[in-house]
Amino acid sequence: MRILQYLINGISIGSVYAIIALGYTMVYGIAKMLNFAHGDVIMVGAYISFCVTSYLGLPAWAGVLAAVAVCTVLGVVIEGLAYKPLRGTPSLAVLITAIGVSYFLQNAAQLIWSSSPKNFSSIVTMKPISMAGGKLVITGEVLLTVAACILVMVGLTLFTGKTRTGKAMRAVSEDRDAAQLMGINVNRTISLTFAIGSALAAIAGVLLCSTVPTLQPTTGSMPGIRAFTAAVFGGIGSIPGAMLGGILLGIIETFSKAYLSTQFSDAIVFSVLIIILLVKPAGLLGRQMQEKV
């Protein structure tokens, strides 16, 4: 029974990683850059939701909506101000800029909300479901997180597979020049990708802080790095890969915390990643990159 409990907890935290990883992987697929500021957008989302519910006293759904709205705009603004001017420059320049944006967001949050942790109250009011005489507990947060993850996955799959805009996104991801020759506005597609990724980050932020209620300016950085790992693990650029990678990472993390060592859980998680990448360099569901001639 205990194993089952760990598994459920692992899937739950893994679902949060998966939602974050989707943002990483979509931006990588379309803009061909690693947006290391993505984790900090999560933190901003959580703060916005916190302010709306705790300071303004509005209901939880309003907090989530506000977080999504602010982060969507934030994502588009970051892309437009920081990354767009660097299009066509070496990828290292963009990477360093992304790290800069990450620190900028953390420091801005420190100025606005101070570095002392806030106590984030969960957006879920449902009572935990207790089974097997209290040995197996499923909280409302777990249910909500997993449901959100499934919804996001289905939504994105339908969007990229069925809609005109979604297909155009895949076209840009595959061949930017050819997509332009089809009349697709690449800049607008990249902005849209950042908007979607950042909206997902906001949702992930609220879900994360509902499970782990301490909110501070660095809240997003470690989950961000883990989610990036999850995206690479599953095969960066692949939407189902990000999902699978996130959930597996959550499960591995929870089990290593439970059975091996809490302190070394990150080390264990990253060791697993290294082993997987040695065996399958493109990640679990990633395509082997072919050099174009």
């Binding site: 297909k167 895949r170 076209a171 595959e174 061949d175 020049d177 050819a178 997509a179 332009q180 020759l181 089809m182 009349g183 697709i184 506005n185 690449v186 395509r287």
Partner: peptide
């Protein structure tokens, strides 16, 4: 003019190496 606007003016370009979307 930006490349993506030209098709709307009626100018199409079939590039070297075909450049179809191989994964679609």
């Amino acid at each position: 003019m930006d490349a993506y606007k030209l098709l709307r003016h009626g100018l199409a370009h079939v590039p070297e190496g075909r450049r179809i979307f191989l994964q679609m």
